[in-house]
């Protein structure tokens, strides 16, 4: 059976206008300024698999997630989900179908549920929006089944979100996401606000649901151990660009890009490695990024070419890397 592509993102660009106010700009004759949160980024996700994005804070992971979900104006590029262009103003039904296929699980379990709604209404919202229930009784039944599926009980539907702990709220969030029967879920740091023991429960629930329902995940995290646990493929992001796309096993066994190596080296682990390399330099300002390869100011292998020419993704075995040093076999 050929692997089917569930999600395809082609040269996605998302720019934020961060210009100073009009008057200031006119007085000081300043140009408009853009923050390139996502700059020419492409990847695809195979059906039933998990594609993860890792990177430092502010590198644009959430922005990618929000654009794929259609929550964010994209500047350029194309996003195709299950073969339909999410942004295409085509037939209404198609649009609806496409929307049905994308759901999202958010980072903060406290802000992602409307505090004034009962849990059963929260979970039923997508069912109502897409008219997926025959009648009230059917809807109630679906909600009860969903709550049980995520490890809550049907009677929890009567309660309000504040009566639940962080982990339980995240379960409610998952139940809501599943209620429109999507095939594709975006998970933006779904566990980073949770304790490790609760995190394990939620991650297990997510993998179990993936196995049962054949879900496709776009998974975002900054915790490499979580990434390792969840993903099939990993994209490493730096300042709005992807610097390495690789199967998970390759990432940890055989990291190529200097940034990936640095990330891996900085993970604290339970063995308590005593001599971790100290990282020099700070994350550059995304409004005025460096020339050439964005990573060169922090890269120990940078040469003149890195300073002037932007590297493109090149295939090396199963991995695709954007690095001159790797391409020149210096690394």
């Amino acid at each position: 059976m050929p692997e089917q592509v569930a999600v395809q993102v082609d040269s996605l660009k998302v720019y934020f206008d961060v210009s100073p106010p009009l008057v200031t700009r006119l007085l000081n004759k300043l140009p408009r300024q853009y923050l390139k949160a996502v700059d020419d980024l492409s990847f695809s996700i195979t059906k039933g698999q998990t594609f993860s994005l890792v990177g430092e804070s502010g590198c644009g992971k959430s922005t990618v997630a929000r654009s794929v979900a259609g929550l964010c104006r994209i500047h350029d590029g194309q996003i195709t989900i299950n073969g339909t262009d999410a942004d295409l103003p085509a037939a209404r039904q198609d649009q609806r179908d496409a929307a049905e296929q994308v759901q999202m699980i958010f980072q903060s379990p406290y802000a992602s549920l409307n505090p004034r709604w009962r849990v059963r209404d929260i979970v039923a919202e997508p069912i109502r929006a897409f008219k997926l229930a025959r009648d009230k009784a059917d809807e109630r039944q679906q909600v009860a089944r969903l709550l049980e599926q995520v490890g809550l009980s049907a009677s929890d539907g009567e309660k309000y979100p504040h009566e639940f702990s962080g982990g339980q709220r995240q379960r409610i969030s998952i139940a809501r996401a599943l209620s429109s029967r999507p095939k594709f879920l975006i998970c933006d740091e779904p566990t980073s606000a949770l304790d490790v023991s609760v995190q394990a429960q939620i991650l297990n629930l997510m993998t179990q649901l993936q196995d049962e329902l054949g879900l496709t995940y776009l998974f975002i995290s900054h915790d490499l151990a979580v990434i390792d646990h969840m993903s099939d493929w990993v994209g490493v992001m730096y300042l709005g660009r992807i610097c390495e796309i690789t199967p998970k096993s390759e990432l940890f066994a055989n990291p190529r890009h200097p940034y990936t190596r640095m990330l891996l080296a900085t993970v604290p682990d339970l063995q308590g490695k005593s001599n971790r390399p100290t990282i020099t330099g700070e994350v550059p300002n995304p409004i005025t990024p460096p020339t050439g390869c964005y990573f060169h100011p922090r890269c120990p292998h940078a040469e003149d070419r890195c300073r002037s020419e932007r590297p493109t993704l090149q295939t090396h075995g199963p991995t695709r890397v954007a690095c001159h040093a790797v391409q020149e076999k210096r690394l």
């Binding site: 929000r66 929307a99 999202m104 958010f106 980072q107 992602s112 505090p115 919202e125």
Partner: peptide, 26 residues
Amino acid sequence: NKDYIAAAKLIRTPVPLILLRHILPN
């Protein structure tokens, strides 16, 4: 800017409904 609004947008809830049913009660 809270995520429950994003969740409502995700299922294409029309803006008047978002205002009325999500924002207003809060």
